[in-house]
């Protein structure tokens, strides 16, 4: 009972293999995509090819600005593969934090010890936040390192803002998974909720950009809140960042309240 934040330390340090694995995946994505920019994204042929694609497709894939360095990093790394990897990592951790732990039968024993349920949720959420921030920080550093050699020409300040939004977007899915896992005690429901937030956000963005008639969909898309103005190109929309992080915090609070109220393992 002497050490501080025992549940956080367990959740954070005992998953180092997983954290390392996702870090390696994100690093691979950065090293695969970004050095290709001078030969693909920046070339005139690429722009011709993008122009030849149906406009709907370009919009759906956020390839409209792919011919500039920041636009290329935005569309490929932050908007596609990085987004995918970060979301999966965050949702998996979020769903495992409470719902998965309960389903595997281990939460019961933890709660039989000298801990409060609110404390369990908060410390494990902290471990989720920290891991996501760590991975986003890694992406920030890698892009910064590759900025010069890959001739991307990204403003570091814009990159920082994009990394904050990148983390916030992944956290929203992850905390949705954590919250639904804590409410239901089922890992699968948590995973489904986290995936739904991410996939629907992506789809609403892709569809909403197609025509003014369906533009309202964009308001429902966390993906669009984060990336609607291409933060790597134009700098972050800090209000959107506030929403993503704020909603994530609210979902954690909801999870804590829900777990406090109900029977565990029943």
């Amino acid at each position: 009972m002497n050490a501080t934040l025992p549940l956080f330390r367990r959740a954070f340090f005992d998953t180092w293999r997983s954290t390392l694995g996702w870090a390696a995946g994100l690093a691979a994505a950065a090293f695969l995509y970004l050095p290709l920019y001078p030969s693909i994204g920046g070339s005139a042929q690429m722009q011709d090819m993008v122009n030849a694609l149906p406009a709907e497709m370009t919009k759906a894939l956020n390839y409209d600005q792919i011919a500039t360095g920041p636009g290329y990093a935005q569309a490929t790394l932050f908007g596609l593969l990085g987004f995918l990897l970060m979301t999966i990592a965050s949702v998996a951790w979020g769903a495992a934090a409470v719902g998965g732990d309960e389903e595997s039968g281990q939460l019961e024993l933890t709660l039989a010890h000298g801990v409060r349920r609110v404390q369990v949720v908060l410390e494990r959420a902290l471990a989720l936040f920290l891991r996501v921030v760590l991975l986003s920080g890694l992406v920030f550093v890698l892009v910064l390192v590759l900025n010069e050699p890959s001739q991307l020409g990204i403003e570091p300040a814009n990159l920082f803002g994009a990394a904050v939004l990148f983390a916030g977007l992944a956290l929203l899915s992850g905390t949705a998974a954590l919250c639904v896992g804590a409410v239901t005690g089922r890992k699968t429901y948590g995973l489904a909720a986290g995936a739904a937030v991410a996939v629907l956000g992506y789809v609403f963005n892709a569809v909403g950009r197609q025509s003014p008639d369906v533009e309202w969909l964009l308001n429902l898309s966390p993906y669009h809140w984060a990336y609607g103005n291409s933060p790597v190109v134009n700098g972050a929309d800090w209000a959107a960042a506030g929403w993503l992080w704020g909603l994530s915090a609210a979902l954690v609070a909801l999870a804590a309240v829900a777990l406090e109220q109900r029977d565990v393992g029943a």
Binding site: M1, S104, G114, V115
Partner: peptide, 26 residues
Amino acid sequence: YLPGELFLEGRVTGRKLLAHYQAISG
């Protein structure tokens, strides 16, 4: 407390797991 069905997963040694439970018991 010893639960009726004991699930201990994860890649930790018994010693580390007990150190964790030690941190949250008397």
